[in-house]
Structures are given as C-alpha cells and as structure tokens.
C-alpha cells in the first residue's frame, strides 16, 4: 500500500511465471519478423529463444517458434496480440497442447589435447554428438536435442576447452498425425 505519488496505479503482480513455446505461422513478407519482435519489445514480453524460417515456399508461409515466459495472463495476451497481427495466420501454444516435441541444434567448438581431447570425444559419443570438423587440437561437435540436453552438454565441455557455441534456438512440432 506504499503507493508513490503517481498518475498511474502501480501494482506488483505475483503470479508465477511459466515458460511456453509458441508456433506462429505467418505470411512471409518484408518486415513480418520485425513486427513480431517489435510486439515483444514494445509490450515488454520476454523472448528466450526465436527460430524462423520459410516452411512452405509456394504459399509464402514462414514459421516462427518463440519460447517466452510470463504469467498465464501475459501468455494469453501474447497469443492474442500475435493472432491479431494482419500477416499472422495462426498461433499455437505448443506447451499448452502438451503433445509436442522440441529440438535445438548446436555446434560446439572444443580445443584441447591429450586426456581432455579423449574425454570430449567420449562424452560426444554418450550424447550422440557428431564430429563435423577436426584439427589436431580441436573439434566441432554437432548436437541435437532439447534445450536441457544441449545445456548439459555445453556445461560438460566447459572444463575440456570450450571455445565457442552456436545454437539454432528451439523448433517445435506436435506429435501425432494431425498438422497445426
């Protein structure tokens, strides 16, 4: 109740945050990504991960996958705000449907020699990461999986000489025979 003098009603909300993955089907036209990102920055929503690519070239459709966090009311707002944009066809909450698969790809560069090098290869094998580039003192691994698995792999590589990571961000798709 310690309200500072203000023309606005300042209120703190204490609802817990949730993380949701949204798939947004859009018309692939100039500026469409800027519109979507601008909505998030303009309204103060979070983007934890963003992946975008054209998925149906003939129909000029692109699919944007966004991982975001917020209270349930904010998540509902984000979906509604996205849905009312003119070039947006459809917004699907992949988290809410609970029947979706999420994957990310990462390329991980590790530099080292001797025992570190052997250990890195051993762990790569355990995580089903592939070697896609090698020198006598380095590897680049390609690893695919959900965000947690990739985070875990990167953590393990850190003491073994982690140099650089490049990640695609999350892509998601629903299970079962039905399309979006």
């Amino acid at each position: 109740m310690n309200q500072p003098a203000s023309a606005y009603f300042i209120e703190e909300r204490h609802d817990p945050n949730e993380t949701h993955t949204l798939a947004v089907l859009v018309q692939n036209e100039p500026g469409v990504l800027a519109r979507v990102i601008g909505l998030f920055s303009g309204r103060g929503y979070n983007i934890e991960s963003l992946t975008v690519s054209e998925t149906e070239a003939q129909k000029h459709l692109s699919r944007i996958t966004i991982v975001t966090t917020g209270t349930p009311m904010v998540i509902a707002q984000i979906k509604n705000q996205l849905d009312r944009m003119i070039p947006v066809y459809q917004v699907v909450d992949m988290t809410q449907t609970r029947r979706s698969i999420e994957r990310e790809l990462a390329m991980v560069k590790v530099r080292g020699q001797g025992e570190h090098r052997v250990e890195a290869l051993r762990l790569a094998d355990a995580f089903r990461a592939r070697v896609i580039d090698a020198t006598t003192e380095s590897f680049v691994f390609e690893i695919t999986g959900n965000t947690d698995k990739i985070n875990q792999y990167i953590d393990l590589m850190r003491p073994l000489g982690l140099v650089e990571v490049s990640r695609t961000g999350v892509a998601a798709i629903g299970r079962g025979p039905e399309g979006m």
Binding site: F9, Q81, R84
Partner: peptide, 28 residues
Amino acid sequence: DRITGRVDAFSPGSKKIHIDIDPSSINK
C-alpha cells in the same frame, strides 16, 4: 487503467460479461 482504478479492488463481487471485437482486449 483510467476506468478501473486499483485493479485488485475493481468490482470485486460481480460476474463480468465482455463484448469486444478484439480478442486481445479480453482478460488484458
């Protein structure tokens, strides 16, 4: 916000019906 005043004390005992053409106005 010029209408509601304090949100957590806004019309506490009522059932609310909201007609709007913009879905993003609902539950905002």
